[in-house]
Amino acid sequence: MRRIPISALIGLILTGGFFFVAIFAQLIAPYRMDELVGGVWDPISATHWLGTDSIGRDLLTRMIYGAQVTIFVATCATILSFVTGSVLGFIAATAGGWVDQALSRLVDLVMAIPTLILSLVILTALDVTMINLILVMGFLDSTRVFRLSRAVAVDITVMDYVEAARLRGEKQGWIIFSEVLPNALSPLVAELGLRFIFAVLFISTLSFLGLGVQPPLADWGGLVKENSAGLVYGIPAALAPAIAIAALAISVNLVADWVLSRTTSLKGGRGA
């Protein structure tokens, strides 16, 4: 096992930390999520490490629950986009013909509209619930996973070893799972990280616009929105969740970069 580069190590520790906080939010948080514990925008103190928010709730507590909401929604959306996108991508690549044409053109169409704009249109007509948010984010983003996994699988299916398996008389299932999938994995794993970052940024943006997670629940984007009014008066409460979003995205990015460089240099990868 090679040593882990320092940047990836930082990324791993921070990502792990964020997930730990998210999973055990109920145990870690010093106060209840919607408990009023002080004045409006109290400054940082021993009892309130990050001060209080726009209506007097403990900001640290809000941040910890915010981590849970943000990471939960982003993780669900990522899994949905990933499973949908890669399954359809592989099907399109191995089936070819009209199946491929239909799926590819549909994806072209959805991608012809910027994702944020299209999701705003959809959320106008749809109730903004957490389930709907996850569904909209997951399906819209699965178009990108579809394109990547289809491209990767098409590259692999023209390889001679896949042809050799066909000539041997192997079934379609063997070809997908034994020949194509193992070789498609490393680009897809790196993409998983990027899709997760995208989901974090996306849910934050929606919530910031008031169209994401609804009060009293709040993700980090919602926390920025709640506290943004204070900024003009020099109260930096909105910056804490803003920085948290950036920190999570950067740490996942560092890990994804490392995974990508590591998996391509594995045994059996490109080059010795």
């Binding site: 920025v224 943004s228 950036a246 950067i250 990015n253």
Partner: peptide, 21 residues
């Protein structure tokens, strides 16, 4: 790496807080 990890509104508030406020 840093800027692609910043959503527009985060960048916006950082700039606003530092340069304007």
């Amino acid at each position: 790496l840093a800027t692609i990890s910043l959503p527009e509104f985060v960048a916006g508030y950082l700039v606003l807080y530092i340069l304007a406020v």
